[in-house]
Design a protein around this nucleic acid. Structure first.
Length: 618
RNA sequence: GCCCCCAUCGUCUAGUGGUCCAGGACGCCGCCCUUUCAAGGCGGUAGCACGGGUUCGAACCCCGUUGGGGGUACCA
């Protein structure tokens, strides 16, 4: 391993210089990383001694718990977190290597003191190394869930913050539900949010392919080796049989599979086959507690025997998620798994699998886990994929800014500081610390998301705002693409005023339509409110006269003329004076500032609309 | 049922034994500004689930209760 690698980690994270908001660059490249990767390279040829592997694993897990620049903070956590001893009894241990400190009952993982020394003569000094490798591994089924993107964002931020690597992998093992369209959409969404990946689809990398549908041989090979090594076994029981056995034993059938087929004889297996049965492959769960120190939850423990042997491969040979996910993580050298809390109960199974894999020479044991809080909807329940509010497209289409939406997403379980919640992607990267992620479920609050986005929208340079708004106007047929010089002029004039009264980009269509059409359509409600009655007619007539005579068509002159005609001349309160005019010109009760709008609109259209509105008043 | 996770304003959170009669943000309410709507400024409303314990001292540590949630597939 390259000693410079350790040095690198002591230096400030350079990625910030390059990763401006919204345009993050590729992750930092470390010369040492390749070396490291190379040694743990797939497909798991046991071309290194078990000792070396084990030592490597220790290094990964003991030293990898933190990167040097964050030592102080991590230390603070280590001392400060409330101790939380495991709930269940039993002295079991972690199946994989790297459990130093696990029994110490620290909350928030990071245990640095009292680490056991790395005792290997063949490895470099014990400088914190093992660069973080996180991954995002969605399955391309249907819409993209905002909670899913929060998970992606946190994995990305964790990798970027630590100068690690962000891997993108597609878990398309369910042919019935996956689609190419969803796959492409996923890539698009990730890019839209500003999350770039260092390895994965369309980017490549040393551990490819990154789509599980293309990795069938890998899984078949691993499954065969697990079977040969005795970690997995063929199971012929049907659900009905398991059920019946549970009932016969006076147990709740909901307990699930009973490990009945663990020790079938060759003859029994042959007999089942003869019946025409095809076996599933199950992992033999260890007879020990399964525990880990969760990056966001502290110690979590499942009692031995609580988790039955689970299915790795279907009867038809198709590998299942609980199998392929850890296999790929191991093969791809993933060090940190940040995922939703809904997956927490499956962690013991994964732990057992990682251990079995390590024993047959694949990977180096379990990664660190951090289980992120669930994102809930209106009530207290997990935001359903069926709920329209969960669909990222809804927010994209409405014209949320990527940086605004990412900002809000980051707030779902994390906070940057005590008195601040507006920040850019680069600031998120700089400050993100996964151990400071909250364990509480987080409600998706549209109002707050909008408020955050509005702040980002207002902060945009006007030119950028204009450029972002233009496609929405073009999409509504209000301007051509690109806008004509005249449209450009109008846009430039109105943009600053539009910018500060919008929440999302799509609102520009309704707000600015009146400036880009010949005749305005007056909203019925607006007409009811402002154009009914003789008063409105009087106001419109006076405005028509005042503006018709106006020599200098400028905002100040328009203001002067209107005020003297309506407020002074008619004695109207400003509210009553300008309401009908506003509706006549914009068709709505809400518009950009009136005088400026009139100037932009021009004399001809202004007078025509006053006349049209006058006709409506009757 | 069983296993696991969680518990501070309506919502998201800060809080790591004294500096907290608990801070920020969104929302809501009021005022100012004002040609509408916003924006902006100022102010206000509202919370440590409960019971024990440890301690000189508990939002914070421990135990329990209650409540909420997740999981419990040959889905992912």
């Amino acid at each position: 391993m390259d000693p410079r690698q350790g040095l690198r980690l002591l230096l400030p994270d350079r990625s910030l210089d390059r990763d401006g908001p919204g345009r993050p660059g590729p992750g930092p490249r470390r010369p040492g990383g390749h070396l490291h990767r190379g040694r743990r390279a797939a497909p798991a040829g046991p071309h290194q001694s078990a000792d070396l592997r084990r030592a490597d694993a220790d290094l990964l897990h003991v030293e990898g718990h933190d990167a040097a620049p964050r030592r102080c903070r991590a230390h603070r956590h280590a001392v400060g977190r409330r101790p939380r001893p495991a709930r269940s009894a039993g002295g079991g241990h972690h199946p994989g290597p790297g459990l130093a400190g696990q029994q110490r009952g620290r909350r928030r993982g990071r245990v640095h003191r009292g680490r056991r020394p790395v005792s290997s003569g063949t490895l470099p000094p014990a400088v914190p190394t093992a660069p973080v490798r996180t991954r995002f591994c969605p399955s391309p089924t249907g819409t993209v869930h905002v909670g899913l993107m929060r998970t992606a964002l946190f994995n990305w931020a964790h990798a970027r913050h630590t100068g690690g690597t962000f891997v993108f992998r597609i878990e398309d093992t369910d042919a019935a539900r996956d689609s190419e369209e969803s796959y492409l959409h996923l890539l698009d969404c990730l890019r839209w949010l500003g999350l770039d990946w260092d390895e994965g689809p369309e980017v490549g990398g040393p551990h490819g392919p990154y789509r599980q549908s293309e990795r069938g041989e890998v899984y078949a090979d691993v499954a065969a080796r697990l079977l040969a090594a005795g970690h997995a076994y063929e199971s012929f029981s049907t659900n009905e049989e398991v059920d019946a056995r549970r009932r016969a034993a006076g147990q709740d059938p909901k307990l699930g599979y009973d490990n009945h087929d663990r020790f079938l004889t060759d003859a029994q297996r042959a007999a089942f086959r003869h019946e025409g049965r095809t076996p599933v492959l199950r992992l033999r769960m260890p007879d020990e507690d399964l525990a880990w120190t969760d990056l966001v939850r502290g110690d979590v423990r499942f009692a031995a025997g609580a988790v039955p042997d689970f299915v790795l491969v279907r009867g038809n040979g198709a590998p299942l998620y609980p199998f392929v996910n850890p296999v790929d993580d191991a093969l791809m050298g993933i060090t940190d798994v940040l995922r939703g809390e809904d997956l927490l109960p499956s962690t013991p199974r994964q732990l057992a699998l990682y251990a079995a894999l390590a024993e047959i020479g694949i990977g180096s044991g379990a990664p660190r886990f951090g289980h992120l809080p669930l994102v809930t909807g209106e009530g207290t329940k997990k935001l359903s994929k069926r709920d329209p509010q969960s669909n990222l497209d809804v927010y994209r289409d409405r014209g949320f800014l990527p940086e605004g939406f990412a900002n809000y997403l980051a707030l779902l379980g994390w906070s940057i500081a005590e008195d601040r919640d507006i920040f850019a992607m680069a600031e998120l990267v700089e400050a993100f610390d996964v151990t400071r992620v909250s364990a509480n479920p987080a409600r998706f609050d549209l109002k707050k998301a909008e408020a955050i986005n509005a702040t980002h929208l207002r902060a945009l340079p006007v030119a950028e705002f204009t450029a972002k708004v233009t496609p929405y106007l073009a999409g509504a047929g209000l301007v051509s693409e690109p806008p004509t010089p005249e449209q450009q002029r109008v846009l430039a004039a109105i943009a600053p005023m539009a910018q500060e009264r919008m929440i999302v980009l799509s609102e520009a269509v309704g707000l600015l339509r009146f400036l880009f059409v010949e005749d305005v359509e007056i909203e019925p409600a607006a007409a009811d409110k402002q154009l009914s009655g003789a008063d409105a007619a009087e106001v419109l007539d006076a405005a028509t006269v005042a503006l018709g005579e106006l020599a200098d068509w400028s905002t100040p002159a328009i203001e002067g003329a209107l005020k003297s005609a309506l407020v002074d001349g008619l004695g109207r309160k400003p509210r009553q004076a300008f309401g009908p005019v506003r509706v006549a010109l914009s068709g709505r009760t809400v518009s950009p500032p009136l005088y400026e709008s009139i100037e932009i609109l021009g004399r001809e259209r202004t007078l025509a609309r006053l006349a049209a509105a006058r006709a409506v008043t009757g």
